[in-house]
Design a protein around this nucleic acid. Structure first.
Lengths: 225, 225
DNA sequence: TCGGCGCATCAAGGAACCGTCAAGACTCGT
DNA sequence: ACGAGTCTTGACGGTTCCTTGATGCGCCGA
């Protein structure tokens, strides 16, 4: 179902994960060191990476950083260390999820499932978004408000595309940031405020009382048809 | 609180575990053999299994394997045997935790608590909750009462999600507080009253006579479909 | 009947979050 | 090298949300 690279120097854990992942229909690649991990990453092009931060050679965060230089593949980080610093650092470097050791195997499987689902959803994007008095054609990069055509910048297009993919559903801050600015921007909510403001001034009849680009405080934004 | 199946052929131990688990508010099912265990598992749908590997009929690992064919329920394995092989084999077959006999009862209780907590976190919440005149879509964060869409805050969503996970069953104060505000808020019942009130004003046709968000004095709340 | 307990309700203060403006920094084409 | 367009970053004020205290009601046992 999915090609998953497991990076861990604990052979017991490797075995447990391999069995559990295989049982769920995934193809499993194993690496016991940072170098092996990067080699396998280049050679085998996995669709998901499970990465232990405690590795014999390279630091796990360094491995993550190098992966992120080339790819937006989902990465789930494992760590025995208890410090919250690790978690923050890993997520800032673009980890998609974080699990502390010892962990429940089923919980990890649930997180794998969630990560796979997120990326498979990301594949399909609608070509257009329409609402009374507003159309967005993502294929042609054409936007119209009423009879006027309006100009949107590349970042504005990406943000609107991510919102339009979910058609009126709420999209969390983190998802928007990752989709538009890439992994590693999980906490820069400020970007969203600035661009939401710009977009509203372009697409909303009354930017002060938005009808399409709606914010839910503490959660995210939605694009209302 | 949790429906727990205890599988052991030692009646003394059965008794000890039953008393201790009941004292912590759990519902206890007992089985003395592998066949009984599988029968009870199918019939009673326990939320946690404590499984002794030394059983008169089937091998404990075989019981675990059959359970795992149908369910991801957390299983804590007990064993008198000292070999590490047992442990490896059991964990490979999907056991969540392993305790060697003889064991300290309080330690086992701690592991039960940990297993319950993990799965309550890991369990995937249902995507929607529906009742006549009320729908909650947790994925999209969309709520409607009649034909109106209503706005819920992040904390209100979290509280409703935790209640919806249990579909009409009573959820104790402590569980709600822990799920929404995190561990360490076990006794701040005041939060629940304030937010229950706010939620009722939004989702109930007549907040003074709630039909969905029901309180059970001294116990907790339930969300009625 | 009274007091204690748990719950519902209201209100105020402060914290967290958002919208807005504007000044640099950067990219790209000319 | 210059300028237009775009993105990043900082600052500030307004809004929403959470927390916390105060008060009233109903139930139950003393």
């Amino acid at each position: 179902m999915t090609r998953i690279l497991v990076v861990d120097d604990d052979s017991m854990l490797q075995r447990t994960l391999r069995i559990n992942l295989r049982a769920r229909g995934h193809e499993v690649l194993l690496a016991s060191s940072g170098r092996q991990a990067l080699a396998s990453f280049v050679a085998d092009d996995p669709e998901l990476v499970i990465l232990d931060l405690g590795l014999p050679d390279l630091d796990g965060v360094e491995v993550l950083r190098r992966i992120r230089q080339h790819s937006a593949v989902p990465v789930i980080v494992l760590s025995a260390r208890q410090q919250a610093d690790d978690k923050i650092e890993a997520l800032d470097e673009g980890a998609d999820d974080y699990v502390s050791k010892p962990f429940d195997v089923n919980e990890l499987m649930a997180r794998v499932r969630a990560a796979v689902r997120r990326t498979s959803v990301a594949a399909e994007a609608p070509e257009t978004f329409t609402a009374p008095g507003l159309t967005l054609d993502f294929g042609a990069h054409l936007a119209t408000r009423g009879s006027e055509t309006i100009h949107l910048t590349p970042t504005e297009w990406r943000l609107l595309a991510e919102l339009a993919r979910h058609q009126g559903r709420l999209v969390p801050h983190e998802d928007l940031l990752r989709a538009v600015w890439g992994p590693g921007y999980g906490r820069e909510h400020h970007y969203l405020r600035v661009f939401a403001n710009q977009i509203r001034r372009k697409i909303e009849p009354d930017p002060a009382a938005p009808r399409h680009l709606i914010n839910e405080p503490g959660l995210g934004y939605r694009l209302q048809p």
